[in-house]
Amino acid sequence: MSNRIESLLAELFAVDCVRGAAVVTDDGIVVRSALHGGYREDVVAGLASFLVQTTRRAMTEDGCEAPQLDRFVLHATHGKILLASVGEGWLVAITDQFAHLAEFEAQFDDIAVQIRNEVRVGA
């Protein structure tokens, strides 16, 4: 399973605009990652987990019963961050500011689906 995830991450990482990609668990543990030198995998995993958990907690505390989060897309001044749920964890991709989301999102979603299937098979 892990080899397959690695190769899917490598495929994502090979896209021009991608600075890094990782699969992380809900509680911020790195499953596999392919990141440029500047990134630390534990930081990326921790922040992805923080974003998901904080949003989920806010929704639960405010009365939304069992909120199920599927996807985050964040635009920032120097890049974009995409997160897609892959069952027990999250696929994270960090891109530069030139990424064309319309094109990239389809590829990202496709890889997220494949990873989700892998995780299911693995489980």
Binding site: G38, Y39, V43, V44, L47, A48, F50, L51, T55, A66, P67, Q68, L69, D70, R71, F72, V73, L74, H75, A76, T77, H78, G79, K80, I81, I94, Q97
Partner: peptide, 18 residues
């Protein structure tokens, strides 16, 4: 998250779910 992941200031985004 955007600041710490070194992509600058967050400007806009979406969250999808049930």
């Amino acid at each position: 998250a955007a600041k710490r992941m070194d992509v600058g200031n967050f400007s806009k985004g979406t969250v999808d779910g049930n």
